[in-house]
Protein backbone atom coordinates (compact mmCIF):
# COMPACT_ATOMS: atom_id res chain seq x y z
CA UNK A 1 0.00 0.00 0.00
CA UNK A 2 1.31 3.43 -0.83
CA UNK A 3 2.19 5.94 1.86
CA UNK A 4 -0.63 8.30 2.79
CA UNK A 5 -0.10 12.02 3.01
CA UNK A 6 -2.67 14.59 4.01
CA UNK A 7 -4.46 16.79 1.49
CA UNK A 8 -5.83 20.11 2.67
CA UNK A 9 -8.14 22.15 0.50
CA UNK A 10 -8.53 25.24 2.61
CA UNK A 11 -10.33 27.47 0.11
CA UNK A 12 -9.75 31.20 -0.09
CA UNK A 13 -8.17 33.22 2.71
CA UNK A 14 -6.50 36.55 3.32
CA UNK A 15 -2.78 36.91 2.74
CA UNK A 16 -1.96 36.88 6.45
CA UNK A 17 -4.18 33.84 7.09
CA UNK A 18 -2.65 31.91 4.19
CA UNK A 19 0.92 32.47 5.32
CA UNK A 20 -0.04 31.71 8.92
CA UNK A 21 -1.63 28.40 7.91
CA UNK A 22 1.46 27.30 5.94
CA UNK A 23 3.68 28.15 8.90
CA UNK A 24 1.33 26.35 11.32
CA UNK A 25 1.50 23.18 9.20
CA UNK A 26 5.30 23.48 9.13
CA UNK A 27 5.46 23.65 12.93
CA UNK A 28 2.91 20.85 13.43
CA UNK A 29 4.75 18.58 11.00
CA UNK A 30 8.11 19.34 12.65
CA UNK A 31 6.61 18.23 15.97
CA UNK A 32 5.38 14.98 14.45
CA UNK A 33 1.75 15.97 14.98
CA UNK A 34 0.67 15.72 11.33
CA UNK A 35 1.78 13.72 8.29
CA UNK A 36 3.42 15.22 5.19
CA UNK A 37 0.83 17.61 3.84
CA UNK A 38 -0.08 19.06 0.47
CA UNK A 39 -2.37 22.07 0.59
CA UNK A 40 -4.25 23.87 -2.19
CA UNK A 41 -5.55 27.38 -1.60
CA UNK A 42 -6.47 30.76 -3.03
CA UNK A 43 -6.35 34.40 -1.95
CA UNK A 44 -9.31 36.58 -1.10
CA UNK A 45 -8.98 39.52 -1.38
CA UNK A 46 -6.18 39.57 -3.98
CA UNK A 47 -2.78 40.08 -2.42
CA UNK A 48 0.91 40.57 -2.97
CA UNK A 49 3.33 38.35 -1.16
CA UNK A 50 6.95 39.45 -1.02
CA UNK A 51 10.01 37.31 -0.40
CA UNK A 52 11.55 37.25 3.06
CA UNK A 53 14.52 39.37 1.93
CA UNK A 54 12.66 41.97 -0.07
CA UNK A 55 11.98 45.53 0.98
CA UNK A 56 8.21 46.02 1.21
CA UNK A 57 8.18 49.66 0.20
CA UNK A 58 10.66 49.07 -2.59
CA UNK A 59 8.53 46.35 -4.15
CA UNK A 60 4.97 47.30 -3.24
CA UNK A 61 2.93 50.46 -3.73
CA UNK A 62 1.29 50.30 -0.33
CA UNK A 63 -1.05 53.23 -1.03
CA UNK A 64 -2.26 51.68 -4.28
CA UNK A 65 -2.88 48.41 -2.40
CA UNK A 66 -5.08 50.28 0.06
CA UNK A 67 -6.92 52.04 -2.79
CA UNK A 68 -7.63 48.79 -4.64
CA UNK A 69 -8.24 46.57 -1.60
CA UNK A 70 -5.15 44.45 -2.26
CA UNK A 71 -3.50 42.96 0.84
CA UNK A 72 0.21 42.39 1.24
CA UNK A 73 2.30 40.04 3.33
CA UNK A 74 5.93 39.08 3.79
CA UNK A 75 6.57 35.35 3.34
CA UNK A 76 8.92 33.24 5.45
CA UNK A 77 10.39 32.02 2.15
CA UNK A 78 12.77 33.94 -0.09
CA UNK A 79 12.13 34.76 -3.72
CA UNK A 80 10.29 37.59 -5.41
CA UNK A 81 7.08 39.56 -5.13
CA UNK A 82 3.99 37.76 -6.40
CA UNK A 83 0.58 39.23 -7.20
CA UNK A 84 -1.95 36.58 -6.15
CA UNK A 85 -5.28 36.86 -7.83
CA UNK A 86 -6.32 34.23 -10.35
CA UNK A 87 -4.20 31.28 -9.39
CA UNK A 88 -4.05 28.04 -7.52
CA UNK A 89 -1.49 28.14 -4.75
CA UNK A 90 -0.05 24.97 -3.29
CA UNK A 91 2.13 24.21 -0.34
CA UNK A 92 3.90 21.04 0.65
CA UNK A 93 5.26 20.39 4.12
CA UNK A 94 7.44 17.35 4.72
CA UNK A 95 10.33 16.37 7.01
CA UNK A 96 13.77 17.11 5.58
CA UNK A 97 14.70 13.53 6.42
CA UNK A 98 11.91 12.02 4.30
CA UNK A 99 13.48 9.67 1.73
CA UNK A 100 11.49 11.31 -1.07
CA UNK A 101 13.06 14.71 -0.46
CA UNK A 102 16.58 15.33 -1.77
CA UNK A 103 18.93 16.86 0.80
CA UNK A 104 20.19 19.24 -1.88
CA UNK A 105 17.89 22.25 -1.95
CA UNK A 106 17.92 22.81 -5.72
CA UNK A 107 17.27 19.12 -6.32
CA UNK A 108 14.34 19.26 -3.93
CA UNK A 109 12.89 22.24 -5.83
CA UNK A 110 13.12 20.20 -8.98
CA UNK A 111 11.53 17.14 -7.35
CA UNK A 112 8.55 19.06 -6.00
CA UNK A 113 8.16 21.01 -9.23
CA UNK A 114 7.98 17.65 -11.02
CA UNK A 115 4.70 17.00 -9.20
CA UNK A 116 3.32 20.23 -10.68
CA UNK A 117 4.69 19.37 -14.12
CA UNK A 118 2.85 16.04 -13.92
CA UNK A 119 -0.27 17.91 -12.80
CA UNK A 120 -0.02 20.28 -15.75
CA UNK A 121 0.37 17.25 -18.02
CA UNK A 122 -3.06 16.11 -16.82
CA UNK A 123 -4.35 19.45 -18.05
CA UNK A 124 -2.76 18.66 -21.45
CA UNK A 125 0.02 21.17 -20.86
CA UNK A 126 3.67 20.20 -21.30
CA UNK A 127 5.98 22.17 -19.05
CA UNK A 128 9.53 22.04 -17.75
CA UNK A 129 11.39 23.04 -14.62
CA UNK A 130 13.47 26.20 -15.09
CA UNK A 131 15.99 26.57 -12.26
CA UNK A 132 16.08 28.17 -9.80
CA UNK A 133 12.40 28.16 -8.95
CA UNK A 134 10.15 28.40 -11.99
CA UNK A 135 8.09 26.13 -14.22
CA UNK A 136 7.78 27.25 -17.82
CA UNK A 137 5.62 26.41 -20.81
CA UNK A 138 7.40 27.11 -24.11
CA UNK A 139 9.80 29.35 -22.23
CA UNK A 140 7.11 31.34 -20.46
CA UNK A 141 6.67 31.18 -16.69
CA UNK A 142 3.46 29.58 -15.43
CA UNK A 143 4.58 28.77 -11.90
CA UNK A 144 6.87 30.34 -9.32
CA UNK A 145 7.98 28.47 -6.21
CA UNK A 146 9.75 29.22 -2.96
CA UNK A 147 11.15 26.93 -0.29
CA UNK A 148 12.29 27.25 3.28
CA UNK A 149 13.68 24.70 5.68
CA UNK A 150 13.03 25.21 9.36
CA UNK A 151 12.95 22.83 12.34
CA UNK A 152 14.29 20.07 10.02
CA UNK A 153 11.17 20.47 7.89
CA UNK A 154 10.70 21.57 4.29
CA UNK A 155 7.98 24.03 3.30
CA UNK A 156 7.64 24.79 -0.38
CA UNK A 157 4.84 26.90 -1.71
CA UNK A 158 4.09 28.23 -5.15
CA UNK A 159 1.56 29.26 -7.70
CA UNK A 160 -0.05 27.94 -10.85
CA UNK A 161 -1.34 30.91 -12.82
CA UNK A 162 -4.93 30.50 -13.96
CA UNK A 163 -4.98 33.94 -15.53
CA UNK A 164 -2.83 37.03 -15.28
CA UNK A 165 -3.61 40.73 -15.57
CA UNK A 166 -0.19 42.29 -15.92
CA UNK A 167 -1.47 45.87 -16.01
CA UNK A 168 -3.38 45.40 -12.77
CA UNK A 169 -0.33 43.74 -11.25
CA UNK A 170 1.75 46.85 -11.96
CA UNK A 171 -0.79 49.15 -10.37
CA UNK A 172 0.17 47.64 -7.02
CA UNK A 173 3.79 46.66 -7.60
CA UNK A 174 6.39 49.40 -7.72
CA UNK A 175 8.24 50.01 -10.95
CA UNK A 176 11.66 51.70 -11.17
CA UNK A 177 10.13 54.64 -13.04
CA UNK A 178 6.81 55.50 -14.68
CA UNK A 179 8.72 55.96 -17.93
CA UNK A 180 9.71 52.30 -17.87
CA UNK A 181 6.31 50.99 -16.87
CA UNK A 182 5.03 50.26 -20.38
CA UNK A 183 8.22 48.43 -21.29
CA UNK A 184 8.08 46.44 -18.08
CA UNK A 185 4.46 45.44 -18.70
CA UNK A 186 5.33 44.37 -22.22
CA UNK A 187 8.39 42.40 -20.95
CA UNK A 188 6.33 40.57 -18.34
CA UNK A 189 3.67 39.76 -20.94
CA UNK A 190 6.43 38.16 -23.01
CA UNK A 191 7.79 36.17 -20.10
CA UNK A 192 4.65 35.03 -18.26
CA UNK A 193 1.75 32.84 -19.32
CA UNK A 194 -1.34 31.31 -17.72
CA UNK A 195 -3.64 28.34 -18.11
CA UNK A 196 -6.25 30.60 -19.66
CA UNK A 197 -3.79 31.90 -22.21
CA UNK A 198 -2.55 28.44 -23.16
CA UNK A 199 -5.92 26.73 -23.27
CA UNK A 200 -7.81 29.68 -24.73
CA UNK A 201 -10.49 29.37 -22.08
CA UNK A 202 -10.90 29.54 -18.32
CA UNK A 203 -9.65 26.53 -16.39
CA UNK A 204 -11.38 26.15 -13.05
CA UNK A 205 -9.59 26.21 -9.70
CA UNK A 206 -11.05 22.81 -8.75
CA UNK A 207 -9.98 21.20 -12.03
CA UNK A 208 -6.44 22.42 -11.49
CA UNK A 209 -6.49 21.17 -7.89
CA UNK A 210 -7.63 17.72 -9.07
CA UNK A 211 -4.86 17.59 -11.68
CA UNK A 212 -2.23 18.73 -9.18
CA UNK A 213 -3.40 16.12 -6.65
CA UNK A 214 -2.76 13.44 -9.27
CA UNK A 215 0.59 15.03 -10.05
CA UNK A 216 1.73 14.84 -6.41
CA UNK A 217 0.42 11.28 -6.02
CA UNK A 218 2.27 10.09 -9.10
CA UNK A 219 5.54 11.92 -8.46
CA UNK A 220 5.84 10.73 -4.87
CA UNK A 221 4.00 7.38 -5.26
CA UNK A 222 1.66 8.29 -2.44
CA UNK A 223 -2.04 8.65 -1.77
CA UNK A 224 -3.30 12.07 -0.78
CA UNK A 225 -6.08 11.70 1.73
CA UNK A 226 -8.43 14.61 2.26
CA UNK A 227 -8.00 16.00 5.77
CA UNK A 228 -8.48 19.14 7.81
CA UNK A 229 -6.31 21.39 9.92
CA UNK A 230 -6.00 20.04 13.45
CA UNK A 231 -7.12 22.21 16.36
CA UNK A 232 -3.43 22.73 17.24
CA UNK A 233 -2.76 23.97 13.71
CA UNK A 234 -5.80 26.22 13.87
CA UNK A 235 -4.56 27.75 17.11
CA UNK A 236 -1.03 28.15 15.78
CA UNK A 237 -2.33 29.75 12.58
CA UNK A 238 -4.35 32.29 14.56
CA UNK A 239 -1.32 33.03 16.70
CA UNK A 240 1.00 33.46 13.68
CA UNK A 241 -1.56 35.63 11.92
CA UNK A 242 -1.98 37.95 14.92
CA UNK A 243 1.62 38.03 16.11
CA UNK A 244 3.41 37.97 12.78
CA UNK A 245 1.81 38.08 9.35
CA UNK A 246 -0.72 40.82 10.02
CA UNK A 247 1.74 43.05 11.87
CA UNK A 248 3.56 46.08 10.57
CA UNK A 249 6.66 44.92 12.40
CA UNK A 250 6.86 41.77 10.26
CA UNK A 251 5.67 43.10 6.92
CA UNK A 252 7.77 46.28 7.03
CA UNK A 253 10.83 44.70 8.61
CA UNK A 254 12.93 45.23 5.47
Amino acid sequence: MSEQWRLLQTGFHTAAENMAIDRAILVANSQGLVPPTVRFYGWQPPAISIGYFQSLTEEVDVNACQRYGVKYVRRITGGGAVFHEKELTYSIVIPESHPQIPKNILQSYSRICNALIRGLHHLSIESTYAPINDIVVKGKKISGNAQTRKHNTVLQHGTILLDVDVEKMFTVLNVPSEKMKDKLISDVRQRVTSLRHIRGKDVGFDDVATAMKRGFEEEFTITLRQGALTSEEDQLATQFENECFSTRQWNHRR
Partner: peptide, 15 residues
Protein backbone atom coordinates in the same frame (compact mmCIF):
# COMPACT_ATOMS: atom_id res chain seq x y z
CA UNK B 1 24.29 47.51 5.31
CA UNK B 2 20.88 46.40 4.12
CA UNK B 3 20.76 43.43 1.74
CA UNK B 4 17.44 42.90 -0.03
CA UNK B 5 16.29 41.07 -3.14
CA UNK B 6 14.59 38.00 -4.52
CA UNK B 7 17.37 35.53 -3.73
CA UNK B 8 17.17 32.61 -1.28
CA UNK B 9 19.30 32.05 1.83
CA UNK B 10 19.14 29.19 4.30
CA UNK B 11 18.63 29.83 7.12
CA UNK B 12 16.87 33.06 6.20
CA UNK B 13 17.81 34.79 9.45
CA UNK B 14 21.46 34.56 8.42
CA UNK B 15 21.07 37.65 6.27
Amino acid sequence: LRITGDFFAYPEEAI
